[in-house]
Design a protein around this nucleic acid. Sequence first.
RNA 1: GGCGCUGUCAUCUAACGGUUAGGAUACUGCCCUCUCAAGGCAGGUAUACGGGUUCGAUUCCCGUCAGCGCUACCA
Length: 499
Amino acid sequence: MSPSSSSPARQQISAIGPRVRFAPSPTGFLHVGSARTFIFNWLYARHNGGTMILRLDDTDVERNTEASVNSIFEGLKWLDLGWDEEYRQSERIALHRRTAEAIFQKGLAYRDFTPAHSGESERSGTEERWLFNPGMRGLSSAESHRRAAAGEPFALRFCVPREGGQLVRFTDAVYGEQVKSAADIEDFALLRSDGMPTYHLASCADDADLRISHIIRGQDHLTNTFKHVLIFQAAGTVPPQFAHLPLLVAPDGTKLSKRRHGPVVSVTTYRDAGFLPEAFLNFLCLLGWSPKNDREQMSRQELVDAFSLDGINRANAVVNFREAAKTLEETFDPKALWLNAEHIRALAVDDLSQRLMPIVREAGFNVEPAKMKRITPLIRERMKLLRDVLTAADFFFVDQLSPYDPAELIPQKGDTAMALKVLRKARERLANTEFAQDALDQALRAAAQELGVKAGQMFQPIRVAVCGRKNAPPLFATLEVLGRETTLARIEQAMGKVQ
RNA sequence: GGCGCUGUCAUCUAACGGUUAGGAUACUGCCCUCUCAAGGCAGGUAUACGGGUUCGAUUCCCGUCAGCGCUACCA
């Protein structure tokens, strides 16, 4: 399950089970849409006992960066799903060229000597649709060879059959039977004029060579698939099975993009905000896929067991995040937050506690793991994000409470006098009560009765004195963890504030 | 513009011709309760529109509208 070291040398190809791949192009950080594609591939592989392959599609030297490669690994590492084989397209260019050459030899591709970025490309500016350049497609082979031999640069284009109303077809596991007239497909490039393979060529050549059995990818490739089928056939291989995934879109319906939508589309944003990888995984799975039994909160293993291509639907799914939200929490899709809270509550206390430690430490608090373990059960039902530990349990970490409004110390339907009376009583009683939940509970309730105030009126001033705010975890458990010394000191301070 | 795909509550989705169109999130109210949460209960909101086919359409067909994707020597 751990990533194999990047040895591009031919690895043992397993003949057992499906072989799927995730093939990102390293032009930015790991996008949530990409992460979901990875996840669906991984789920399919694991459910069917197959092989998960990571392939970096880095043939575009202009735009690929090593920083992007790193950030993709960073995101995938956080997801913690792993893969079985790893390749880099840039190390397999010889294969791509061989494939292109073979297609050319069969007469299924031709040289296009049109200079790159020439006036010709302005065709995209016009409303004209471009299918091919007759002058180049119709070049005699003698002429073609002559110009190539003379060193004139050319791109290699696939010669799409456009006579006789040929149809290109394939079956998509999600979108069903797909048919398109070959006449509607343009003569796409296989090799650039610098000899580098294009995405279409490299991708198909690698898929064939790596014996990929199922291509599971975004629906933005659905139309491209017709070209790919043409390439596979020209290369003399049987196309793999296809399954296209509905796209993830923003609330405005447009494709998720960093430029338009900001950091909410980056996987690391979720990590840094305190999402549990298993919750994030769960959330993404529910976008465009359904187990069909109304299950929502699912563990990694449950997802593997339940996953099936049949459950994938066809309509785009919107990630319901909010741009321009005031708080971090409001930024995320509410369902993602809810699922995260569910997963947090499903975690064992020790486990959660360990995950909380680094966050607390990074925030500058020095807390012993043993103490954290005692705090965790008090706050875990009050967290949506791991980072919430900082606001939910802050008073456990500090020596000195940050300033709060003394008015908060005044109980419901009470006054300053009552607050003072309660605090005084609490100080007295807490000085010689055992600091254990039950004992504290009994002692303070009894004290309330003696004072003739309601339990709530008794507890609130103490809570505010000790936590610095009205809303906090259950009081007795809190006091128990805080201990007598801290509790009494804070009550003392509170008394000073009311006067 | 051409080609392709899609259209069920605000959002994620279920219902493979027959359901009072189900669940979840979010929202509102009530209960529980030492506050806040969590939990329980209850509530409102949906089949884009128009035609067919059928005894019967969310479901099948056609059209309209809308959205998205592709239309690069990007991936």
